[in-house]
């Protein structure tokens, strides 16, 4: 084999190795770290797995937020107006967290049906609805009554 071809072969092999390592690492990491979204109806129907981290979201039920008296523990119910799920969180809730607002939480579903959240997201714009939540509400055929259409050109970044 020519020296030149040999060198080319080495380079190609190097590139393939790098690519292979990247692909292997990322598929492994993906398998570990994907979290799927479930809405309260799916959770009530027992479709959500208990062992892995999932995301769940909906509207925070009016009057459901209960705080612990001497820590930052908080309980609230999240609903899509057909079913609801109790969430528990220990920490600081985002600024836009409020009853009647849409939220998305990441965490694990316990066997007793309580969702222990390690992260709660409410977006920075009060007119904004997390798409997952909007979709699940649509499914619950309640969208018209609960949210207005997001206003055109409502605040965005950059």
């Amino acid at each position: 084999m020519h020296a030149k071809r040999k060198k080319r072969l080495t380079i190609v092999l190097f590139l393939l190795c790098g690519l292979g390592v990247a692909v292997a690492l990322s598929t492994y990491a993906l398998r570990q770290n994907i979290s799927l979204f479930y809405d309260p109806s799916q959770i009530a129907a027992g479709e959500a797995p208990g062992e892995v981290r999932i995301r769940a979201g909906g509207m925070v039920e009016e009057g459901s937020v209960k705080r612990d008296l001497d820590s930052l523990k908080v309980n609230f119910r999240v609903t899509d107006y057909t079913a609801s799920v109790t969430m528990q969180y220990d920490g600081i809730l985002p600024d836009l967290f409020a009853e009647g607002q849409g939220v998305v939480a990441t965490g694990r579903l316990q066997p007793d049906g309580v969702f222990i959240a390690d992260q709660v997201l409410a977006k920075h714009d009060e007119q904004y609805m997390p798409p997952e939540v909007a979709e699940s509400l649509e499914r619950a055929a309640m969208l018209k009554k609960t949210v207005d259409k997001p206003a055109e050109g409502s605040a965005s970044g950059y």
Binding site: L25, A29, Q32, N33, L36, T106
Partner: peptide
Amino acid sequence: LGRISIGEPFYNLTFSPV
């Protein structure tokens, strides 16, 4: 095929070694 999110752990695991 479902709504998934890929968060920090994925990148910590893969980006840091690179």
